[in-house]
Amino acid sequence: MPTLGASRARARRAAGSVPPSPLPPLRVLRLPSAGPEDVVVDGTGRVLTGTADGRILRVTLPGQGRGGRVEELARTGGRPLGLEPLPDGRLLVCDAHRGLLCVAPEDGGAVEVLADAVAGEPLRFCSNASAAPDGTVYFTVSSRRYGLDDWRADIVEHVGTGRLLRLAPGGAPEVLLDGLHFANGAALAPDASYVTVAETGTRRLTRYWLTGPRAGRADPLVEDLPGFPDNLSRAADGTLWVALAGPREPLLEQLHRAPAAVRRAAAAAARRVRVPPRRVLRVMAFSPRGETVHDLARRGAGYRMVTSVSAHAGTLVLGSLVEPGIALCALPPARV
């Protein structure tokens, strides 16, 4: 199976001399349960998210009639992370404990397991998914070594056991890319020519080509992000939004260059000592060619560890692995 080293092309550098623009003030909508790790917008403009207790929730935003209304659509029996609405009203769910699921809100929240193993190996940490028009699903597994509760250990040990997988209609899951450093968000290109994967551990967006002369090969789309990329979302205009769950950590980068035994010891310590997230918010957006369209940041906002961002009708919707609700703010103009 291919690895990232199969092909490299010139990538955009995300960190430059231009400072980020201020992220507008946030309004937080509290939810019945905490940890809305991913936020997506359905065809009616309502926000879908999954929470730490296994619920899938639908939120009607302010200005949409019964603004602020929260409905429970389903319970997965695990820990839902990445979500992807399907054209028929169903919902793909990457569950960290149960694998790739399909939820039918109009059928009483029925939950179907689409994939919980690949080549006989359980999907330990299913993270995010993107669906192609033909029904093919591209999804990520963040780690083959650690589960969700120990995500910090994977980032610290830096061994690269993440994967990008494909599930064709009626088929079995297959591995497209191996050796990724904490594979996270996944998003198809507007023309479905490639799928982008966020590699949290290396602060880059990796592109896997699906069509054309580079099909089956991978290269970086954006490198040297100023923080750790998490979930990805594709806006209606083709813009790729990425949430940075935390800022760049120079000491961690030094640790990544240390011998494997040192990194293993540090990972064991990370499982015992939980460092609280820093109160720095940052989200970015890129064109299909990797050019920076938005770079927005805010310090001390009172909303920590943004793991997802979606743009809809002039509003940014933010989600977090740890916060008790979703956050909303105005979408500023794009960079000229």
Rank of each mutant, 00 (worst) to 15 (best):
A6G: 13
R8S: 12
A9M: 15
V18G: 06
P25C: 10
P36M: 05
D42Y: 11
T44V: 15
A52F: 06
G65P: 07
G65R: 10
G68L: 10
G77T: 11
R79W: 09
P80E: 09
D88V: 12
G89M: 10
L101A: 05
A104H: 12
D107N: 11
V118W: 05
Y138L: 08
F139S: 03
T140F: 00
S142K: 00
E157C: 06
H158L: 09
G162M: 05
L165S: 01
G170A: 09
G170L: 13
G170Y: 12
V175I: 13
L176K: 08
D178R: 13
G185N: 02
G185L: 00
L205I: 08
G212Q: 12
G216R: 08
G216D: 09
A218K: 02
D224Y: 02
G227D: 04
S233R: 05
R234A: 09
D237K: 14
G238K: 11
T239Q: 10
G246Q: 03
E249L: 15
R264K: 15
A269M: 15
R271T: 10
R274C: 07
T292A: 11
V293S: 05
V293K: 06
A301R: 05
M305L: 12
T307H: 01
G319Q: 04
P324I: 00
L328N: 01
L328Y: 05
P333K: 10
A334L: 15
R335L: 15
